[in-house]
Design a protein around this nucleic acid. Structure first.
Lengths: 331, 331
DNA sequence: CCAGAAACTGGTATCGGTACCAGTTCTACG
DNA sequence: CGTAGAACTGGTACCGATACCAGTTTCTGG
């Protein structure tokens, strides 16, 4: 293997010192136009690609921004990641993604590993990290943004919305629209703590309004359209007189819709289905589904911006919450 | 900010040299059990997290594996990424994702930047990189895997399937099942070269079979369920007598189905819809849709494995193609 | 035409690890 | 009990960049 081209090679080729070459390759400050051109040309000629590892070690900080999400298969996080990507794009920073699969242990390992790359900042999902993970995040004074969830106190900054409020609002809206016999369908509540939280608050609110949940179907494993379909089937078998079902998310609700369509159950006349997230998919379905439209792209964008902001200050200035209210849509 | 804990601190706390501490912290070879314990304890006590940057610089190679995909919003790539993630998990390597948005320039920048992190290997999407990008990939002798596409010669290894064959097979299968008046609906063909390739081969094959395409609707912008829905509407308006539509992918086909359901067009009796990818979503839809089930998870897994394999050899041993045949499903 | 400032240049130390090699301490065996 | 070899330990020289500072050149105004 032909040894990698280094800055020293570029400097030699350009007939200048390593330092001048170094300065020329990044901001062209304090370098004469003549040398700047020579160095650029030399770099081009010999195919210099640089070495971020050395650069990062040298100034004790990389231009990486770590992003930790629980899942890739959930399109919600894809959209958040896209938002982050777009906001970072062009700033010279680079996102690095890690996936926890909703596993707290794994989250700890990932955060730890990311920290060992001395990132410029970290974006993690939720406020419910393990104590060990929180300790890691706290000890360092690097910018940390916790996204999706604002029901709690962040380590540094949180960007998202209150899952509790979102569920409460939906419960109120459904009852206000005349629904009385309401059921619940969800998946993966052991791990998806946000979904679990919504379910609890939803049920509570219904209770307070005097129309408690009639029944629910909950399954383990990842949520999916398929799971939504068969859980709905099961729920409606036990409670054929439901006039509304609240789902842990849109995919599940879509599955519910497909069940209804296959069984001649009118949606939303006979039964209103309510999902969560407001995926684009919903607007194309043959029947309208209620949902809470969450600002995913914005969460990503604001989270990235918060990191970039923080990089200008030296210290954290106390927990900051950036609330991005979701919007309810009824059929 | 309290200066970061370094290996020297650990060594001091444990009362050993930096070298012994270093050895203890990774494979415990050539370190006495006594010192191993001392070092581990010291590291634990003072909260040592390590510094991959320094380690990577030292041995001139990081444990990063760069993964370049065109899009995050396409679930296909999410699944490929999941496959990669799972295969890498536990090996000590770490994936770093980059998104090109189907932009060749951006792809070049991303590959370049990734190379500057001296990754252990690189996984990129497709075989159609720009010349500049290919040069980058060629010059280095690091493991490179090009995924999704095997219609061409890879730089090093390619893992995927032939888009051409896949389209041809579907055309043959649809005609064999009795379909004669066939249309096409697609999106984003300028950028998604794989989808474009399928369209061309599909049309060619139909021609050869004596039943050429009756009509097609093509739009710019990302593919989506919504786009599928309105393009189908437009196509069927112009050609109400179609008995089959081939889509650029499953999402589009799902949109087509929703249009048909909303307009009392029987699927698949009156018109067969054929997507591409075989997303799980399809199995839950109220009507069956034909598709080509692509082995996305496997592509990810095999790609990662190929990288790990390569790391054991020193040199590349000529272009290698790993073909993972997709499977056709008719309604 | 010269002093002083501004613009530019390059040497050296350093970032936090690891490879390599030269000791030093054990251990086992004749 | 001596010694060869294994097991272990630590010093030193990097890896490839950048910060800092000192030195040199160029420019400016009086």
């Amino acid at each position: 293997m032909p040894r990698k081209v280094t800055l020293a090679d570029v400097a030699a080729a350009a007939g200048v010192s390593k330092m001048t070459a170094s300065r020329a390759m990044r901001g062209a400050k304090d370098v004469s136009q003549k040398n700047l051109d020579k160095v650029r040309k030399a770099a081009q000629d010999i195919g210099y690609v640089g070495n971020h590892v050395a650069a990062s070690l040298s100034n004790n900080r990389s231009d990486l921004i770590g992003v930790v999400v629980p899942s890739l298969s959930n399109i919600v996080f894809s959209e958040v990641m896209s938002g982050i990507e777009r906001a970072i794009d062009g700033t010279g920073f680079q996102p690095v993604f890690g996936v926890t699969d909703y596993d707290t242990e794994k989250e700890y390992d990932i955060v730890r590993r990311m920290l060992s790359w001395r990132p410029a900042g970290l974006i993690v999902t939720g406020l419910d990290q393990s104590d060990a993970t929180l300790r890691l995040l706290q000890e360092d004074s690097l910018p940390v943004v916790q996204i999706m969830d604002t029901d709690g106190t962040p380590v540094d900054v949180s960007v998202g919305f209150s899952q509790d409020n979102a569920a409460e609002e939906m419960a109120k809206a459904l009852v206000a629209s005349g629904r009385r016999r309401i059921g619940y369908v969800g998946c993966n509540l052991d791990q998806d703590t946000r979904a679990a939280r919504r379910r609890i608050r939803f049920a509570q609110t219904l209770e307070e309004l005097g129309h408690p949940l009639i029944g629910e179907e909950i399954a383990d494993g990842m949520s999916s359209v398929a799971a939504g379909r068969w859980l709905t089937s099961a729920l409606l078998e036990r409670h054929p007189d439901l006039d509304c079902i609240y789902y842990s998310n849109d995919d599940m609700a879509a599955g519910g819709l497909f069940h209804c369509m296959g069984n001649n159950i009118k949606v939303p006349e006979k039964v209103v289905l309510a999902g969560f997230n407001g995926l684009d998919l919903l607007t194309s379905l043959p029947a309208p589904i209620a949902t809470t439209r969450t600002p995913r792209d914005q969460i990503g964008r604001r989270a990235a911006e918060a990191i970039l902001d923080r990089l200008n200050r030296t210290e954290r200035d106390g927990p900051t919450v950036i609330e991005l209210a979701p919007e309810i849509r009824l059929p």
